[in-house]
Design a binder for these strands. Structure first.
Lengths: 129, 129
DNA sequence: TAACTGTATTAATTTAATTAGTACAGTTAG
DNA sequence: CTAACTGTACTAATTAAATTAATACAGTTA
């Protein structure tokens, strides 16, 4: 289900968090869908169950999944306008990324174009001013 | 000159790299401007000179500064279209950030607007289609 | 020459991630 | 009811990385 880079400086549990978050955001894992059990995923990835639990706990704290003792862990349906702290962080991230692209010589026009392409893949929304 | 968070899980030298990179990108530190000497910055921040050197070495490897033994470390003038690997990483980052903003309920229009605002702060370029 | 620069090296310490092993309580299908 | 699953908790040992410490060397500069 996942691929890990054990040589990376990023902790395995953080890599897991990022991979799973990505699957949720891109709707590969659907709302209320059950995630692999801690022990199952651990044996699949040949790592310790404690590491999986640490990742799941982090995902729960960040609002991406919920866990029910005895039943399992599930994808938490997104509540629009809920995670304001995360939105602020993303805004900051966006500013930094765009600044660095400008610094590296990417024309503003191209940056806008790229983002519009990305947004139009999601849904056929109207993006023209 | 800098502020560090010793409680952060991010290594001090990586925090330094990010802060200095930001100052270079935002043109606070000008091209060929000299950076604080390793020992000077170390005593200012009350951390070990080796940690500063590690940060400077990383910045040099990533193409943001250059160091001359005996003379000092300096801001490396940007060469547009040079750092393609970094550009690809930024593109990926941008896609991820935008995806998550969409996931959290931000309308596409607003994302575009925010980025245009950010870009117009840099220079009075023409951004309208 | 004296005082500055970056750089290198080795050892000790500190901290975090990871593994290992075990245990407990809630859930569920047979 | 029971067996097999679930998440969760806890302690101890190990591993890996960051950081500090203490020197040392060579190039630069006033």
């Amino acid at each position: 289900m996942f691929e890990l880079d054990l040589r990376s400086r990023a902790p395995v549990y953080e890599q897991l968090v990022e991979k799973i978050k990505e699957l949720i955001i891109n709707n590969v894992l659907k709302p209320d869908q059950q995630l692999p059990a801690v022990r199952v995923l651990a044996s699949e990835l040949t790592i310790n169950p404690n590491t999986i639990q640490k990742a799941y706990r982090a995902l729960e704290q960040r609002g991406y999944i919920y866990s029910v003792p005895g039943r399992g862990s599930f994808v938490k349906p997104a509540v629009p306008g809920n995670n304001m702290a995360r939105l602020r962080a993303l805004e900051t991230e966006l500013v930094k990324t765009v600044s660095e692209m400008r610094y590296l010589g990417v024309p503003p026009q191209e940056i806008i174009t790229r983002i519009k392409m990305q947004l139009s893949e999601d849904e056929g929304g109207k993006l023209d001013d």
